[in-house]
Amino acid sequence: MEQAFASEFERMVAGRTYHSTDPDLSRMRAQTKRVLHEYNTTHPDDEETRMRLLRGLLGKVGDNAWIEPPFRCDYGGQISFGDFIFANYDLTILDCAPVTVGDRVLFGPGVTIATASHPLDFHQRAVEILEYAQPITIEEGAWIGARVVIGPGVTIGARAVIGAGSIVTRDVPADVVAVGNPCRVLRPITDADRDAYLATYGPSAV
């Protein structure tokens, strides 16, 4: 028997099909756009206002999180950012399902995180206007390169590096370099990568 849901929002967060045109969902997205408009038009030096707006909009914002404007999302409340997050310009998150980002994750410019999708069947997609959404998790220490797209239901493992322009449609394990469309594991990250970096650029200045 189909579980009873009190609203389209409940259906959405439960991973069931839902109507994105539902008036309540539309109002929630409109309010999020108002907050994001304020966030994205703050003075570059006004870090206090940006952090206040982020903490009021998102489900969780850890310490020392830095999200460069412009930033866009659908609802905000299902996004969880850990500590020491850095996101470059044009991060877009379609958070129709939970998006969980661990500590010390880096995002290059133009990254898209999309939990939402549509049925393949034309009638369901374009006549009934149905959608569904699946959670996305990015674990601690991952680096997401510029213009990467992460699709519904994906988990990216701790410390993984996703090459620029990749389209990630399947889980990526921890401690690997993955790249491509569709994104595939290229190789593991090893101590040799650290040694090569030191040989080229020298020891840390910290």
Rank of each mutant, 00 (worst) to 15 (best):
N88P: 05
A142Q: 02
Q78G: 14
V111I: 08
G77L: 14
T100P: 02
T42C: 15
R27H: 13
E68C: 14
E131K: 09
T200I: 10
G165E: 07
R11M: 00
W66T: 14
V161F: 09
H123R: 13
T17G: 13
L198E: 10
G145D: 04
R34N: 13
D95N: 04
D63R: 15
N88F: 02
A65N: 03
T137A: 04
D83H: 15
R52G: 10
V149S: 13
P44Y: 04
G108I: 00
F9C: 13
S20H: 14
H118W: 02
R184V: 01
A196D: 05
E68A: 15
Y75F: 11
W143Q: 00
L186C: 06
N181S: 15
L54N: 03
E140S: 12
R29F: 09
A30G: 13
E48F: 12
A6R: 10
T49D: 07
D74R: 05
D171N: 06
G110Q: 03
V13S: 07
P70R: 07
F81E: 10
S26L: 14
E38C: 13
T92H: 10
Q78R: 15
T32Q: 10
R50F: 06
A133R: 03
L186F: 08
A97Q: 04
D95H: 03
F81H: 09
A142C: 04
M28T: 08
D121Q: 06
D74N: 07
G56E: 08
A160M: 04
N181H: 10
L120P: 08
T100W: 08
N181F: 05
R50L: 08
I162R: 04
I138Y: 01
A133P: 00
D45E: 11
L36R: 05
V149F: 15
A178N: 01
V148I: 06
L120V: 12
S204T: 00
G157M: 05
F122L: 14
G76C: 03
P152N: 08
D195I: 11
L130M: 08
I85T: 03
P135F: 00
E8V: 01
P203M: 02
N88L: 05
G145M: 00
R72M: 14
A199D: 00
G141C: 08
L120Y: 13
A126E: 13
V105L: 01
Y132E: 09
I156P: 03
P188W: 05
Y197D: 15
G153N: 01
L53Q: 02
T155G: 04
L198G: 08
A4R: 12
H37I: 07
G165F: 08
E2N: 09
V154D: 00
I136E: 00
S204N: 04
Q3A: 15
A142F: 07
V148D: 06
I129T: 15
L94S: 11
C96W: 01
G163N: 05
E10M: 09
C73P: 03
A178I: 01
E10F: 09
H19T: 09
K33E: 14
V13F: 06
A4W: 10
F81Y: 10
G76M: 01
S7A: 04
Q78E: 15
H123K: 12
S80K: 11
D90E: 12
E139N: 10
G151L: 09
P109H: 02
R194V: 12
P152S: 11
T200A: 15
V177L: 09
Q3Y: 15
G56T: 04
T21I: 12
S80L: 09
R170V: 05
P109E: 07
